[in-house]
């Protein structure tokens, strides 16, 4: 099977999934029992005014009609506007998504960069010093609350040591943002060749990304170690040893055979750690997607909540698609499972 055909099949599977997610998303918000009408119309609104607002929002129509309208709107990139502040939901997503993704990708990327080699090495020295240390660190990472980690880092590296800039956004307050290309100040600064922006954006990134990486690395170490141990225990490794292959060749073989499950796991981490990213983003005042979504939930801002959930769902679907493609390219056996 070619990659093209594989992709088409996967994408076809994704469509019903997305419709289903949209449906759940729609229903969950409707049946949550929260009514935004009063919120929008204000505390002094009369019954007539309330009815007008309901009609304006389409809330007086039957549910299935509302759903069709909702799907139609999604397909035309119309995610509506916030009922609280009238801002376009789609615009806010474009504004805030890169912020969360930046934290997520650098953080999980760094976590993987540390976690995978540590996990593989720990497996190689099973029960040795290094393994014990790795297991301890992983456990430590697991048991550290994210918000506490973030606050302690700010306290130590900004307040006491003054090595890091204040945790106030993604760039120094004195600086103008570079023209938006990717939405990441670091990358946009590089593209615009504004070195002071790059430097400031980088300085702002260090603490939150490190916090994110620590949280991400703990499960990656654990999982990479378990996967590599499993591969090491397989018969083909023993038969490679029986054939006198060198330690380096066998190490490469173990790494290669661990790659697929490890990549899959890191991908799932990417989607699983969005919540963590929201916490960190909040502590460092980044104003990303998580902060925005949580606020909307508290305010019963349906349109924003729907946009938020849909974005997360789409992101997960995309991540899993990329994982599938990676596995397809890495695994000669993939065509059998496809």
């Amino acid at each position: 099977m070619t990659l093209g055909r594989f992709l088409v099949r996967r994408l076809l599977l994704v469509v019903p999934l997305l419709v289903f997610i949209a449906f759940l998303n729609f229903m969950l918000v409707r049946i949550s029992g929260q009514d935004p009408t009063a919120l929008i119309a204000g505390p002094t609104a009369t019954g007539g005014e309330l009815a007008m607002v309901r009609a304006e929002l389409g809330l007086d129509r039957p549910l299935h009609e509302q759903f069709l309208v909702y799907i139609g709107n999604i397909l035309t990139w119309n995610l509506g506007q916030s009922w609280v502040n009238k801002r376009s939901v789609l615009n806010d997503i474009w504004l805030r998504l890169p912020i969360t993704l930046e934290l997520l990708f650098w953080g999980v990327g760094l976590g993987a960069l540390i976690g995978i080699p540590v996990g593989l090495r720990a497996a190689r020295h099973h029960d040795g010093r290094f393994d014990q240390l790795a297991r301890f660190l992983s456990l430590l990472g697991f048991s550290t609350p994210t918000y506490w980690l973030g606050l302690v880092m700010i306290l130590v590296f900004f307040y006491f040591l003054n090595w890091a800039p204040p945790a106030m956004g993604r760039i120094s307050l004195l600086m103008t943002a570079p023209p938006v290309v990717t939405g990441s100040y670091l990358l946009d600064g590089l593209i615009a060749q504004k070195w002071d922006v790059v430097q400031s954006a980088f300085a702002q990134l260090v603490l939150p990304v490190t916090a994110m990486a620590i949280v991400a690395a703990a499960p990656i170490i654990k999982q990479a170690r378990a996967i590599a141990l499993d591969v090491q225990g397989s018969e083909f490794v023993r038969s490679a040893q029986a054939a006198g292959l060198s330690g380096a060749v066998i190490r490469r073989m173990v790494a290669k055979n661990s790659a697929t499950p490890v990549i899959t796991f890191v991908g799932t981490e990417l989607t699983a750690l969005i919540g963590t990213a929201s916490v960190i983003e909040y502590i460092f005042s980044w104003g990303g997607l998580g902060q925005w979504g949580l606020q909307a939930i508290i305010q019963a801002d349906f349109m924003v909540v729907q946009g938020y959930v849909l974005t997360l769902a789409l992101f997960s679907v995309l991540v899993f698609l990329v994982i599938d493609v990676a596995v397809f390219l890495l695994e000669p056996r993939a065509e059998m499972h496809a």
Binding site: S234, E235, F236, R238, A240, M253, N257, L330, E331, P332
Partner: peptide, 8 residues
């Protein structure tokens, strides 16, 4: 079959 490296 288990004795052969599946990825080579």
């Amino acid at each position: 079959r288990g004795a052969l490296d599946p990825l080579t």
